[in-house]
Structures are given as C-alpha cells and as structure tokens.
Lab assay of single mutants.
Amino acid sequence: ALRETGVIEKLLTSYGFIQCSERQARLFFHCSQYNGNLQDLKVGDDVEFEVSSDRRTGKPIAVKLVKIK
C-alpha cells in the first residue's frame, strides 16, 4: 500500500485527525492504529501512514501510523 505523510492536527483520547501533506484532506485515525507509545504522540508531529477506508462509511481513514523522527 502507498504510504503518505501528514501532521497530527487534533488528538483526543482514542482518536485524532491528520492533515495530509499530499492531498487536501483531514483524515481520521483511531489511536489503536499508532504503533508506538501514545504519550509520545502530540499535535504537530509528522507521521507516516497508509490510507484505508472506513468499513461503515466508506470514507478514507489513516491506518498503520508511524511517527517520523
């Protein structure tokens, strides 16, 4: 799958939103999709991810998040 990059724009307890670098979009992500310690993730962090689609709504979502050092 194609990896994309973006910036954490909003972060809540169990989910957040990424502002994409490659496209004009804000993508939802669930915190279970982040492969690191959530305490280390904060607004403004650069992340890399794959784009999938929500099974219920069909909308694009970010999965398999990795923080870019």
Rank of each mutant, 00 (worst) to 15 (best):
A1W: 09
A1Q: 03
A1R: 02
L2K: 15
L2S: 12
R3A: 03
E4M: 10
E4W: 04
E4D: 07
E4G: 15
T5P: 06
T5K: 15
G6F: 00
G6P: 00
G6W: 00
V7A: 12
V7Q: 13
V7W: 04
V7H: 10
V7R: 13
I8T: 01
I8Y: 01
E9V: 04
E9G: 13
E9H: 14
E9P: 00
K10Y: 05
K10M: 07
K10Q: 10
K10I: 08
L11E: 01
L11D: 01
L11P: 01
L12G: 12
L12Q: 06
L12C: 10
T13D: 15
S14R: 04
S14Y: 06
Y15F: 12
Y15E: 02
Y15S: 03
Y15M: 04
G16W: 00
G16K: 00
F17S: 02
F17Y: 01
I18A: 02
I18D: 00
I18Y: 00
Q19R: 13
Q19Y: 03
Q19I: 15
C20W: 07
C20G: 12
C20Y: 13
S21R: 13
S21V: 07
S21Y: 12
S21T: 08
E22V: 04
E22M: 04
E22S: 10
R23W: 04
Q24E: 08
Q24P: 10
Q24A: 10
A25D: 03
A25H: 07
A25Q: 15
A25S: 05
R26V: 07
R26I: 07
L27V: 09
L27Y: 14
L27R: 02
L27I: 12
L27W: 03
F28S: 11
F28K: 13
F28T: 06
F28D: 08
F29N: 00
F29H: 01
F29G: 00
F29I: 02
F29A: 01
H30I: 05
H30P: 10
H30D: 05
H30L: 05
C31W: 08
S32E: 11
S32V: 08
S32W: 05
S32M: 04
S32F: 04
S32N: 08
Q33A: 15
Q33E: 14
Y34T: 10
Y34C: 10
G36S: 14
G36W: 03
G36D: 13
G36P: 07
N37F: 09
N37S: 11
N37M: 12
N37Y: 08
L38D: 13
L38F: 12
L38R: 15
L38Y: 15
L38K: 15
Q39Y: 06
Q39C: 06
Q39F: 09
D40T: 09
D40I: 04
D40V: 03
L41V: 12
L41W: 03
L41A: 04
K42W: 03
K42Q: 10
V43L: 13
G44V: 00
G44A: 05
G44H: 13
G44N: 07
D45L: 07
D46G: 13
D46N: 09
D46C: 13
V47R: 00
V47D: 01
V47Q: 00
V47N: 00
E48V: 06
E48G: 03
E50T: 15
E50W: 02
E50L: 09
E50V: 07
E50G: 11
V51G: 07
V51K: 08
V51S: 06
V51L: 10
V51M: 14
V51A: 14
S52W: 05
S52T: 13
S52Y: 11
S52G: 11
S52P: 03
S52Q: 11
S53Y: 08
S53V: 14
S53L: 13
S53D: 14
D54K: 04
D54G: 11
D54E: 10
D54M: 15
R55I: 06
R55C: 13
R55P: 09
R56H: 14
R56G: 09
R56M: 10
R56P: 11
R56T: 09
T57W: 07
T57P: 02
T57G: 11
T57V: 05
T57Y: 03
G58M: 03
G58S: 11
G58W: 03
G58Y: 11
K59R: 12
K59T: 12
I61S: 11
I61Q: 12
I61E: 12
A62P: 02
A62C: 08
V63Q: 01
V63R: 12
K64G: 09
K64A: 11
L65G: 02
L65C: 11
L65D: 02
L65E: 02
L65H: 02
L65S: 02
V66S: 07
V66E: 11
V66R: 06
K67I: 07
K67N: 05
I68Y: 15
I68A: 09
I68C: 04
